[in-house]
Amino acid sequence: MSAPAGRMLDAAFELLDRQIIDGDGNHAGKVDDLELTPLEDGSFVVTAILSGPGALGGRLGGRLGTAAASIFARLHPDEDPDPVRLSFGVVRELGPQVRLTTSRHHLDVNRFEHWVRDRFIARIPGAGHAPE
């Protein structure tokens, strides 16, 4: 369900840095930045959520931000990767969390998570069972 048209909100306060929850109710990163696309009349519309170190690095600024962005670039298989982009069309609801309609398995936000999982965590006995 989306809110009525005409609603106003402050992007930095009410959207940025909020937790993204995917369609299955799982954590799927933070709203690290927003993509703004120009319309013909000179106004801009939010077309995507940008998430992950590629987007966060830019906002941290300074040496630390550059380092974060460059680590991300190095880990990423593409030559000059864009940050993870979630189309705003999959957003279901804005609130304390930003909820999506799709599962995180269809999104590209989990590359690092999967790398840690496959290389380390999944190899430890008991990793596939919930604690008892």
Partner: peptide
């Protein structure tokens, strides 16, 4: 914007 409805404009 897809399921979100009307897009957020500056």
């Amino acid at each position: 914007q897809g399921t979100f409805g009307a897009g957020l404009r500056i």
